[in-house]
């Protein structure tokens, strides 16, 4: 699951051996190099490069207007980049859209369907577009649409329409699923159902490119996350790595059942500092901090009560890297 930003351009012959490329060494499912896209004077995407490993859930996280959607639309060939190169499974989307459409499943941010078609009719039609479609029953059940097959599209709630859109993105059993703001407008339960489904299809080998501005979604789902702001990648790491990179330290705060000698804690490799706050002890450190502190206390016959742990989050990472909160950035983009 480890892959770095690959700045090199892929050689022109890359698409020739793509049929044999799947064997042997693990191939990049998506290879984006120096992508740039402008709309008039606006630079939407500026020198974006990343590489997604097969079977990975890769998140593109950032505020509205950061260039996330433009990046993935270039990736799937819906837009042609001004410069830079895109390869999905070794294929250039601009040169061979037909093959790209076979191996990708796309959920666009805004897509509607004819209001007087039934859910089942829309699904069956999209299913007929692919040679080896997925098992639809399972997906509709997972997303709570199983009893909606006979409902007209216009009678669905916004969340149901959104879930249908996710089903349609996956109906072709794609090698790469591109999901743009998949859970926007979903209630918390539906959101968790969608996350479970995505983990499930990843376990079966689908690579997922996930655009989101939900921290929780990126933390829960993504193997790696690219933080995008103003068209540039400002950080790329695992969610935990990004969080650690941002704030580094974790804290554990607890009330000891008996007096504790500080040295008991400071000699632990995970601990960097020990402070007292009234009767409470606040330990700062890294790694599996809480576990090692509690185990060490237990060995000394002390019970840790009222334990609270704080770890920095992706949100902290975003704040640290951009100086703004995600939702502040959003408001700024709307002004």
């Amino acid at each position: 699951m480890k892959a770095a930003i690959t700045p090199g351009t892929s050689e022109p012959g890359a698409s020739m051996d793509l049929d044999s490329g799947g064997e042997g060494e693990s191939m990049a499912a998506a290879e984006i190099s120096h992508l740039r896209k402008t709309y008039g004077p606006l630079v939407a995407v500026d020198d974006v490069s990343f590489s997604v490993t097969e079977g990975e859930i890769f998140g593109i996280l950032g505020p509205n207007g950061a260039g996330k959607t433009t990046t993935v639309e270039c990736a799937i060939g819906l837009r042609s980049p001004d410069s830079g190169s895109v390869r999905l499974m070794g294929i250039d989307p601009q040169a061979d859209r037909a093959r790209i459409h076979e191996i990708t499943g796309v959920q666009l941010q805004s897509s509607a369907f004819p209001s007087k078609l039934r859910v089942g009719e829309i699904i069956d039609m999209y299913r007929s577009f692919y040679r080896n479609p997925a098992d639809v029953g399972e997906m509709t059940a997972a997303l709570g649409l199983a009893d909606k097959r006979r409902s007209y599209y216009r009678s669905l709630s916004g969340g149901q329409q959104q879930r249908l859109s996710v089903v349609l993105a996956l109906v072709g059993a794609p090698r790469i699923a591109v999901l743009d703001e998949m859970t926007t407008g979903l209630d918390p339960q539906a959101r968790r159902d969608a996350w479970e489904l995505i983990e499930h299809i990843r376990d079966r080998g689908t690579t997922v490119l996930l655009v989101t501005h939900f921290m929780e979604e990126a933390e829960r789902l993504c193997d790696r996350v690219a933080l995008i702001d103003s068209g540039r990648i400002i950080a790329l790491d695992t969610p935990a790595g990004l969080a650690a990179q941002a704030a580094g330290a974790k804290t554990v705060r607890f009330l000891p059942s008996a007096a504790v000698d500080d040295s008991l804690l400071t000699r632990l490799p995970e601990v960097t500092a020990v402070e007292h706050d009234g009767h409470h002890i606040v330990v700062t450190g890294t790694g599996e901090l809480a576990t090692s502190v509690i185990v060490a206390l237990h060995a000394a016959g002390v019970l840790a009560q009222d334990v609270r742990t704080d770890a920095s989050t992706l949100e902290d990472a975003f704040v640290q890297l951009t100086g703004r909160h995600l939702h502040e950035a959003e408001q700024g983009a709307q002004l």
């Binding site: 294929i91 040169a95 078609l117 069956d124 039609m125 007929s128 577009f129």
Partner: peptide, 19 residues
Amino acid sequence: TRSRAPRAPAAAFGSIVLN
């Protein structure tokens, strides 16, 4: 890789007409 021939199954056209 340059070919633009539609790769969708022919039945797909029938399902679009039906809808």
